[in-house]
Design a protein around this nucleic acid. Structure first.
Length: 802
DNA sequence: CAGTGAGCGAGCTTCCGCTTGACTT
C-alpha cells in the first residue's frame, strides 16, 4: 500500500497516535530525534570559512534515513511535523536537506495538542521552514561544539585524560563546588530555643497549650537568666489573633518539577523518573515527559473539570491557566499530564503506578479550588519580661485541592505541621506552666544539592533542557567531578535546660548531626578543574553566560542578527583564551602543606597523585632517597581542600599490626570495600561499629572465626567442580565461575551431582569465567593486547624487576 | 578484591539536544 502523504514527527509513540487522527491517505513516520549532527572528528566546524558546519548522518540513523528517503520519494506531499521550537525546526530542515525534499511538495506544519482537531487544522495551515530559527539552532550547536572541543583537550593535557568541559556540565559542577566551599567555611553557631507547656490556672478548665518563645537566646547566661525569671513569673493570654489564609495548587508538572517531586516523595533519581515516565508515555498513559511547559490543553482542562465534579463535587473545581515562567522555556509541548484525566490509577509495575498517580494528582489538583484555612496566633505574656510565648494553630475550613495533593518541599526542617488545633482559650486567661524547656540548637549550613535540587537550580539559571537534565548529571558523575553519596553524621553534644516546679535542671545530650542521603559531593578533581576553568574561562562558566547567548539566539531567530556574526564575536576572544591557557598557565596544582608531624618533625602534605588523592609524610629530595616519604590514600569523603593535619596524621596509623593468631600476623587497614583485617592471605571485613584504629586482637579473632563459620555454612554440597552454595538470596549452584538457579521446590539434601548437571544444562551452560589467577597468567603471557592491557603490563613488568 | 604513587612512548578521550532501543544484573 502506498500513501499520498508522508508525515514525519520526532517520536514513534507520537506517530502512532497521530496516525489514528488522519485518514488512510496519510502515513506517519518518526525521525527518532535529530538525524544529523556535526562530524565527530576534529571540530566539525570550518573556522577558516565562516564557521561552515560539516554535518553527517548519525551512526544509528542510517536505516531511518534510508527508509524515509524511499517513502518520501513515493509520496505526493511530505509534511514535516516536528516540534515548534528551535530544535524541532532544525530537525525539519535537516530532513529536508538530507532527504533531498522538493520544496514544492514539502510542507512544514506544527501543532500544540495531539487532537484530531489540532492536527487537521495544522494540515490546513502549512508553512515553509523558518530558516532564521534553524540558524539560531545552528549557532547554539556550533557554540557548544567550539566550547566543548576546544576546552576539553586542554584538560587532558593539564589535568587528566578523558575529562570534559562544556557550557552546561561545567556550570553544574561549579554549583556543587561552590556549595561545598560554602559548607567548608561554615561555622555553626549555637543558640537556645525555648518552649513551654501551659495549663489553665483554674480547676474548671482542662487543657494543655504548647508554645514557643518569640526570641532565641544567643548565650547560656541569657537563657538561664530568663528561666530563673520564669520561676516566679505570672502568665496570661494577652492576645488571640485570627487570620484567614488560603493555599493555591501548584501548576501541573514539567520535567524539572516532576523530577523534584518524585525525588522528594519516592526517592527516585532523576534518571529513574525519566525511565519510568518514558514507559508510561509509550504505553499511552501520559503526555510527553520532556517539556518545560505548564500549559494544559483544552481537552485536559475539560476532562479534569468533569473528573473533579463527579468525584468531589462542583465546588472543588476551578479552571486555571498556568503561564510558564522558567528561563529559556520553549513551550513545544503540554505539561506532563495523564492522557485520560478520568483515570486516577493504571495497571503496571509498582513504580509506574506511583509515578502515574503522582502525575494524576498534580494535574487534577491544578484544576481545583483553593484551600482556605484560619490561622490563630495566641500570645502568652510573661510578667516582668518583654518576651512572649506564642502558639500557632491552623484550622482547615475548606480543603479544596488539598483533598488530592500536597506538595513536598526541600527544607529538611522537622515538622512542617499538618492541622494543628488549639484548645478553646479566652483573652486574659491566667495560665500556669508545667514545663519550660530551653534546647541548644545550631545554625545550619546551606543544604548540599540532590540530583533534583540541582536540576531545579539549573532550570532557574536557564542551563540545560528537559532532555538533558538527567544525562548531564550522569556525565559529571562519570567524569569523576562529583559523587552521589550517603554520609553518616557525627555525634554532637547539646544542652537541655528545663524548668519544672520551680527547679532548673541542666542536661547534656547527644545527637547525630550532618548525616546526608543521596547528596552530590564534589571530588578533588572536580574542584581542581573548576578552579582551572574559573581562572581561564570565567566567561563561559559564568552563571549568566547561557542566558546571554540565549538572548542572542533569539535575535538570530527573529532575523535581527546573523548567526555567523554572533559566533564570530564569541569565538575570537574565546579562542584567544584557549591559546593563552595552553601556553602560559602552568598545570594547575592542587597540593597543600598541612604542617609537620609532631612525632617525626616531617612535613605533612596532601595532593592529587596518579591514582587519586594522597597524603604524604616527608619530602622527596632528588638526592639519594635514604629517607623516602610515606604515602597513603585519603579516605572516601576527605577533600584535599578541607582535610586537617590531625585527620591526615591519623591516616598514617594504618595499616596497623595488632598481633598474631595461629602464627599469622594480623594487619588492620582500610581498602576499597572499607576497613578489614588481613590474616595471612585472607581478608575479613570489620563490622560496622568497629574502628580500625582501635580494634583489638580479640575482636579481630572473633571476626575471623565468624567468617570461618559462615564459609563452612556456605557450602551445602560439594561435588568437586560443582558446588551447591548458600548465598544471600538462598541456595544456588556454582560451576566454573558461574551461578545457576535452583528451583524453589528443590529438596537440597537429596540433590545429586547428576541433578545439578541437569539443571545447568537446562539453564544453558555459560562460558566458564576464568578465576583471578588464570586472568593474571593470561595478561602476563602477553597477547597482542589492546592499549589498556599493554599499559597494565608495563606496570607489572616494572614491579617484577623491582 | 583490599599493596602502588614513576624518566621513554601509540593513539584515544570531548560538547549539547533531539530521540529510542539493545544490552546486562
Amino acid at each position: 500500500m502506498r500513501q499520498d502523504n508522508l508525515v514525519i514527527v520526532e517520536s514513534p509513540a507520537k506517530a502512532k497516535t497521530i496516525e489514528k487522527f488522519l485518514g488512510d491517505n496519510f502515513l506517519v513516520k518518526s525521525s527518532y530525534g535529530h538525524i544529523r549532527d556535526l562530524a565527530k572528528k576534529d571540530l566539525g566546524v570550518d573556522i577558516e570559512h565562516n564557521y561552515k558546519p560539516e554535518y553527517i548522518i548519525s551512526e544509528d540513523k542510517h536505516a531511518v534515513v534510508r527508509e524515509l528517503k524511499k517513502l518520501s520519494r513515493e509520496a505526493q506531499t511530505v509534511w514535516l511535523a516536528s516540534d515548534e521550537d528551535r530544535e524541532g525546526e532544525a530537525i525539519a530542515w535537516h530532513l529536508q536537506e538530507t532527504l533531498n525534499l522538493d520544496k514544492n511538495k514539502t510542507n512544514r506544519i506544527v501543532f500544540h495538542e495531539i487532537t484530531k482537531n489540532a492536527i487537521q487544522n495544522a494540515i490546513k495551515n502549512p508553512r515553509s521552514i523558518d530558516i532564521n530559527l534553524v540558524d539560531a539552532q545552528q549557532a547554539r550547536r556550533i557554540l557548544d561544539r567550539l566550547v566543548g572541543f576546544e576546552v576539553s583537550p586542554i584538560l587532558w593535557k593539564k589535568v587528566k585524560p578523558a575529562l570534559s568541559a562544556g557550557r552546561v556540565q561545567s556550570v553544574a559542577v561549579r554549583l556543587i563546588v561552590e556549595r561545598e566551599r560554602d559548607i567548608i567555611g561554615f561555622k555553626p553557631e549555637s543558640y537556645y530555643k525555648v518552649s513551654a507547656i501551659f495549663n489553665p490556672d483554674s480547676a474548671d478548665d482542662k487543657f494543655t497549650l504548647k508554645s514557643e518563645l518569640n526570641v532565641r537566646f544567643k548565650t547560656l547566661q541569657e537563657t538561664e537568666a530568663f528561666l530563673n525569671h520564669c520561676k516566679s513569673a505570672q502568665y496570661s493570654i494577652s492576645g488571640i489573633e485570627k487570620k484567614p489564609a488560603k493555599k493555591s495548587p501548584s501548576p501541573p508538572f514539567t520535567t524539572s518539577t516532576l523530577q523534584q517531586e518524585a525525588s522528594r516523595k519516592f526517592g527516585f533519581s532523576v534518571g529513574q523518573t525519566m525511565t519510568i515516565a518514558q514507559r508510561l508515555y509509550e504505553a499511552g498513559k501520559i503526555t510527553y515527559m520532556r517539556t518545560d511547559s505548564t500549559n494544559l490543553s483544552s481537552f485536559a482542562v475539560d476532562a479534569a473539570k468533569n473528573t473533579i465534579t463527579s468525584l468531589y463535587g462542583a465546588k472543588y473545581s476551578k479552571v486555571r491557566q498556568y503561564k510558564t515562567k522558567s528561563k529559556g522555556a520553549q513551550e513545544a509541548h503540554e505539561a506532563i499530564r495523564p492522557t485520560e484525566p478520568g483515570n486516577p490509577t493504571i495497571s503496571g509495575t509498582a513504580q509506574e503506578k506511583k509515578l502515574y498517580e503522582l502525575i494524576w494528582k498534580r494535574t487534577v489538583a491544578s484544576q481545583m479550588s483553593d484551600a482556605s484555612l484560619e490561622r490563630t496566633v495566641v500570645t502568652v505574656s510573661v510578667s516582668g519580661s518583654d518576651h512572649k510565648f506564642q502558639a500557632v494553630g491552623e484550622v482547615l475550613l475548606f480543603d479544596g485541592f488539598l483533598k488530592v495533593y500536597i506538595e513536598s518541599n526541600d527544607d529538611e526542617t522537622e515538622d512542617s505541621g499538618s492541622e494543628n488545633l488549639l484548645p478553646p482559650l479566652k483573652e486574659n486567661q491566667k495560665l500556669v506552666y508545667t514545663e519550660i524547656e530551653a534546647t541548644e540548637r545550631f545554625t545550619q549550613h546551606l543544604p548540599r544539592y540532590t540530583e533534583a535540587s540541582l536540576v531545579k537550580k539549573m532550570e532557574e539559571l536557564g542551563i540545560g533542557r528537559p532532555s538533558t537534565y538527567a544525562p548531564t548529571i550522569s556525565t559529571i558523575i562519570r567524569r569523576g567531578y562529583v559523587t552521589k553519596e550517603d554520609r553518616t553524621g557525627e555525634q554532637r553534644e547539646y544542652l537541655k535546660i528545663s524548668l519544672q516546679k520551680g527547679v532548673i535542671k541542666k542536661e547534656r545530650k547527644q545527637e547525630t548531626a550532618g548525616s546526608e542521603k543521596s547528596k552530590l559531593f564534589p571530588s578533588d578533581i572536580g574542584m581542581l578543574v573548576n578552579d582551572f576553568l574559573m581562572e581561564n574561562f570565567s566567561n563561559v562558566i559564568d552563571y549568566n553566560f547561557t542566558a546571554d547567548v540565549e538572548g542572542q539566539f533569539d535575535e538570530i531567530a527573529s532575523g535581527e542578527l546573523e548567526w555567523t556574526k554572533m559566533i564570530d564575536t564569541f569565538y575570537k576572544p574565546f579562542h584567544n583564551d584557549v591559546e593563552k591557557s595552553k601556553e602560559s598557565s602552568r598545570p594547575p596544582t592542587s597540593g597543600r602543606v598541612l604542617g609537620t608531624d609532631p612525632k617525626t618533625g616531617k612535613q605533612v602534605s596532601v595532593r592529587i597523585a596518579r591514582f587519586g588523592p594522597i597524603a604524604q609524610l616527608g619530602v622527596s629530595d632528588n638526592d639519594e632517597a635514604a629517607d623516602k616519604p610515606v604515602y597513603t590514600s585519603l579516605k572516601k569523603g576527605q577533600l584535599i581542600e578541607s582535610i586537617s593535619l590531625e585527620e591526615a596524621l591519623k591516616l598514617f596509623d594504618l595499616p596497623r599490626n595488632i598481633g598474631t593468631y595461629e602464627g599469622e600476623t594480623l594487619i588492620v587497614a582500610v581498602g576499597r570495600f572499607g576497613p578489614y583485617v588481613r590474616f595471612g592471605k585472607q581478608f575479613v571485613s570489620l563490622g560496622k561499629s568497629d574502628d580500625p584504629y582501635t580494634v583489638t586482637v580479640e575482636r579481630a579473632i572473633e571476626l575471623i572465626e565468624e567468617k570461618r563459620l559462615k564459609d563452612k555454612e556456605k557450602t551445602i554440597k560439594d561435588f568437586g567442580n560443582i558446588k551447591v552454595l548458600n548465598g544471600r538470596f538462598g541456595p544456588y549452584i556454582f560451576f566454573e565461575g558461574n551461578n545457576y538457579k535452583l528451583p524453589k521446590d528443590a529438596d537440597r539434601d537429596s540433590l545429586t551431582k547428576e541433578k545439578c548437571e541437569e539443571l545447568i544444562q537446562q539453564q544453558g551452560v555459560k562460558p566458564p569465567k576464568a578465576d583471578k589467577s588464570a586472568k593474571a597468567a593470561k595478561s602476563a603471557a602477553g597477547k597482542p593486547a589492546k592499549a589498556a592491557t599493554t599499559a597494565k603490563k608495563a606496570v607489572s613488568v616494572k614491579k617484577t624487576k623491582k
